[in-house]
Amino acid sequence: MSAPGVFRVAAWVVQRDLRLATRRPSQVLQPLAFFAVVTLLFPLGYTPELAKLRAIAPGVLWVAALLASMLALESLFREDAEDGTLEQFVVSGQPLTLLLFAKTATHWLMTGLPLTLMAPLVGGALGVPFAALGGILSALVLGTISLSLIGAVGAGLTLASRRGGVLLSLLTLPLAVPVLIFGARATELAIAGDSLTGPLYLLGAVAVLGVTLAPLAAAAAVRIGLE
């Protein structure tokens, strides 16, 4: 019997994680609900005036997206480490980097992508004009990819530690600063109706760097965490 190709295996990992997610939808829905609640707290805590909200909308959207994707990270590797799945990954002879990349991609499909798709609703509530949505969506797609990748490294590193939670945020939030800056700037430009190619390119560059390096770091971290 010939061994299945690595991409077949990666596809299986994606399928498996998606199936697991459909069995426990609350894990997927909670970060999304969190994203909505956090952003909607701002009109209540600040002002209902759309003009004023529009000015802080970029920051609000991106900080909320950052926190929501962080919230979903805890479950990224922890359960699979506890039930032995990750150990099977390591001994399977398949490249761990690729398997973890598949898991991270699935994580993005279940948090980053829905967060992005929710942005029009949430953005509308913050007074973001309809014309800006295209730009905001493309910035969020690129930005959330990077957030998931950075988060995967953090989640891998905290496997070895006794407590995840707060430590995970402390590790990953500083690393996410560039994504926050470029993303919020792109959103700001989109709302103002200007060209946002500059920050979009930068977001793209961060995402490409993340795709190349983060799975390697995550694999190293998971190996250490599983010992």
């Binding site: 490294v153 590193l157 530690s161 190293a220 250490i224 965490g225």
Partner: peptide, 12 residues
């Protein structure tokens, strides 16, 4: 383990 995990973080 602490050594190696924190080393990965330092490099990242």
């Amino acid at each position: 383990r602490a050594d190696r995990a924190s080393a990965v973080l330092a490099l990242v």
